[in-house]
Amino acid sequence: MTWGGSVAATTLRRLYAALALLVTACALLLAAPGSAAYADPKGESGGKKLEDALESAAKGQADAIQKLNASKKRQSDLQKLVAQSQAGAKALETQVGVIANRSYRLGRSNTAAMLLDSSSPDIFLERVERLDMMAQVDGSTLKKYEDDLSAARQAKADIDREVAEQQKQVTALGKKKKEAELALASVGGGSAGSGFLDANSPLAKAAPRNSDGSWPKEGCTINDPTTTGCITPRLLNAYQNAKAAGFSHYVACFRHQDSGEHPKGRACDFSAHASGFVNEAATGADKDYGNRLAAYFIKNSDRLGVLYVIWYRQIWMPGTGWKAYSATGDAAAVHTNHVHLSVI
């Protein structure tokens, strides 16, 4: 009986010890970055209305900037074409003048007389061949001269159209800037921000673009490496570049919600705290980490297709730069514990 009781007591102690280890393991798992406890910085947004307004304004800015830059490039190419065509026509002016003078001096009657005055059939054929060759050379020269002038005229007309297109995009950009300012002002923000910039930030690998410089449309087709959801190829590129640049703190991308880019696979939240998403403002080394990460995304915004970045009560958009972001709430809501990245 004593032996049996001793065995039972030992077994019971082992069960308690195993249970304690299990509880400890569960607690560590829940506290570990990447767990469900840290995968969703709840209360992140400033509300659906603000999120939708900022998304629309940022997309409008990005689109206007892309079209404006494309138009400027086309205008630059057209200006080169004008210069080349005018130079080509200028080089042919002397030859065209010679042709005109010769045509004036010879005329049709003189040409016929020259042929009829041939002293032999051989001389007649030789003169016919010379005249034919001259006509071919003259025709080719005049055609090239006319083509160069025509190309210059067309390019100049196209330049005028590009100037009008640029003015259109500048107007569109101004409108979207105003929309962004009004949206931010509705929550007490919108003033100029000090920003987070670092000229020493490394360069990221550029995401693929269309041949005209625009961004291809992408769906949520890639398995999200940070959650069980999906993300776009462009967001994956941004995520991988940030990791390669040394930003190794915990990240959460896809998230189910009723607004914003997270449920579309176009946004990630990058924890500032080394231990994961902690609902308190980052300080010291953690805040410096967030500053450097935000600056990294801004320096590479054109390479990564950045739509906007939010960090430490400031928001960056492609057409406005850093502005105050004054949503109310906890550290997640005002983005003082994580850097939010949205891509086009």
Rank of each mutant, 00 (worst) to 15 (best):
Q166C: 13
A31V: 09
T328H: 08
E218D: 06
A238V: 00
W215L: 13
S271H: 04
P202R: 09
K80M: 11
G305M: 06
A324H: 05
E181Q: 13
K59L: 14
A83W: 03
S271Q: 11
D286P: 08
V343D: 00
G219E: 04
W311L: 02
K156C: 08
K243H: 08
G213F: 11
A25N: 09
Y104N: 12
V306K: 00
G139R: 07
A157W: 01
A333K: 01
K143F: 07
V96L: 07
V187A: 03
L142I: 12
L81A: 11
A281V: 06
L19G: 09
P216D: 01
V334R: 11
R255Y: 04
Q75A: 15
S271T: 08
S191K: 15
Q240Y: 05
G319S: 01
R209E: 01
S140T: 12
G229N: 05
F254T: 04
G305I: 07
V96P: 01
G260E: 01
V82E: 09
G139W: 08
S248M: 14
R255H: 07
D269C: 01
I344K: 10
S109T: 14
K168D: 09
D132F: 09
S120T: 12
K205W: 07
C253D: 06
P121N: 05
K48D: 13
T328R: 14
D224G: 03
D258M: 09
A89F: 00
R13W: 07
A157L: 07
R153C: 01
V137M: 10
A164R: 13
A267Y: 00
L116M: 10
T94D: 13
A192V: 14
A285W: 08
D288P: 00
F124I: 05
N200S: 15
E162T: 03
A8C: 05
K243C: 04
L12Q: 10
L203R: 13
S201Q: 02
D132H: 10
A64K: 02
G190S: 04
A238Y: 01
S248D: 15
G5T: 14
H335K: 06
G305C: 10
G305F: 05
A267C: 06
T11W: 12
L29A: 15
R234A: 05
